[in-house]
Simulated scan of single mutants.
Amino acid sequence: MTTETPRWYKSSYSNNGGACVEVATNLAPTHGTVPIRDSKNPTGPTLTIPATAFTTFITSIKTEDLGGTP
C-alpha cells in the first residue's frame, strides 16, 4: 500500500463560522476512502468512510434529495 498524506480542505461555503468539517478526497482513488475531521481539532480523530458513500452523500446534498419526507 502506498503512503499518502491527506490533503485536507473545507468547503468554501463554510464562511469560517467554526462549525466545519474538512475532507481529504485525494485518498479516494488509491484507498477507496474519504477521511473526515473536525476543522477545530485537526489533530483529533478522523471518520473514514467509503468513497462511494461520500459520493452518494454529496450528490444527495447537491440534488437536495436527502431521503426525508417532503
Rank of each mutant, 00 (worst) to 15 (best):
T3L: 07
E4C: 03
E4A: 07
T5K: 06
P6Q: 00
R7D: 07
W8N: 14
W8S: 04
Y9S: 11
Y9L: 03
S11F: 05
S12R: 08
Y13L: 10
Y13V: 01
Y13F: 08
S14G: 02
N15H: 12
N15P: 05
N15Y: 08
N16W: 04
N16M: 03
G17N: 06
G18R: 00
G18W: 07
G18I: 02
G18Y: 02
A19I: 08
V21Y: 11
E22F: 06
E22H: 09
E22C: 09
E22R: 05
V23W: 15
V23E: 01
A24Y: 03
A24D: 04
T25E: 11
N26H: 10
N26T: 07
N26V: 07
L27D: 12
A28T: 06
A28D: 14
P29V: 06
P29A: 08
P29M: 04
T30I: 10
T30W: 05
G32A: 13
T33K: 09
V34E: 02
V34R: 03
P35R: 03
D38A: 03
S39P: 00
S39C: 05
K40N: 14
N41M: 15
N41C: 08
P42I: 14
T43E: 15
G44I: 08
G44D: 03
L47S: 10
L47V: 13
T48D: 15
I49P: 06
I49F: 04
A51P: 02
A51W: 06
A51T: 03
T52A: 10
F54M: 14
F54D: 07
F54Q: 04
T55V: 12
T55G: 04
T55C: 05
I58T: 07
T59D: 06
T59S: 09
T59P: 06
K62N: 15
T63D: 00
T63W: 00
E64Y: 00
D65E: 11
L66D: 09
G67R: 05
G68W: 12
G68Y: 11
T69Q: 09
P70Q: 10
